[in-house]
Design a protein around this nucleic acid. Sequence first.
DNA 1: TATTGTTATACTCTATAACTATA
DNA 2: TATAGTTATAGAGTATAACAATA
Lengths: 166, 166
Amino acid sequence: MTDRLAGELGWGLAVVFRGYVKAADAVTEGLPGGHRGYQVLSAAARDEPGSQAALATRLGIDRTVMTYLLDDLVKADLVERRQDPCDRRTRLVVATDHGRTVLDDLDKRFARAEQHILGGLSPEDQAAFRALVTALATHVNSVDPVATACDAVEDISTTGRGAQVV
Amino acid sequence: MTDRLAGELGWGLAVVFRGYVKAADAVTEGLPGGHRGYQVLSAAARDEPGSQAALATRLGIDRTVMTYLLDDLVKADLVERRQDPCDRRTRLVVATDHGRTVLDDLDKRFARAEQHILGGLSPEDQAAFRALVTALATHVNSVDPVATACDAVEDISTTGRGAQVV
DNA sequence: TATTGTTATACTCTATAACTATA
DNA sequence: TATAGTTATAGAGTATAACAATA
């Protein structure tokens, strides 16, 4: 179609991410929290029990949002909050037996949803994309996006006028 | 770290996309609409003039949101709405001279923001990732994510109980 | 009747601040 | 003093519905 050089990465990421969320939420009918509820449940079932705050940080959501999310998942008997014997302030998030059963089914659903999103690529490219996304996410999570990007702004600002247009 | 098989794609996409938005918005200080204002301005300057609705569809945002976004960009004298000689209902979105000047600067800023996000990859992997994202986005935009994903649900539902847990 | 664009409204999601309890 | 978690509130972002103009 038309040429799209600048901003193409942002456009592509937005389209792909939105498509994933739509497909994932369509597949989580009845699951509290939609695709994020699945991520929490998946972490609660497969990872070592962690605090709500740690879980929120890794999933990139606010700790207050995590409270609501867990409230709903607990109500549905999918996860439970356990006392941490080492620190009575923290609650460990663990999947219930019922949660693990539901997760088995959800895994299959999500596998299909993901396959649908990646369906336009060859199997080799799909594997490559998965690996690259994981590598990027790990990298991005280990840096402060704003700080470094703002350094870049400073570099540009010294060479001309800024983009302050209003 | 911990193993993360199921849902890893969704987690990675969310982290990378959020990181991009953060870095991009940090770099668009003063630009109405943040990173999406940049996408609109970029399309208005480089693509053939299109209607607001067409632009909204391609960027994946609601047409009512596009109205607000354009209001602000017009106020800032970055784009203008032109009468379409072929259809008096539609408004063509075109960048102003000032908009093109500002865009030159924004392009450099976004190049750095994108570089920051992709910085964890080798140059070859960066190019590969950009190409894969573009290919995926083109594919995703051409399909209805919900419909196909719901087909997948039906397939699963016939083999056992659903994920309806509440 | 259908479509473009606008406006007003309502809804969802997320962040902020204040609070309790622990450390 | 600092941190984990909760709650209430406010804010941003988004979608819904009704409308006018045009096809």
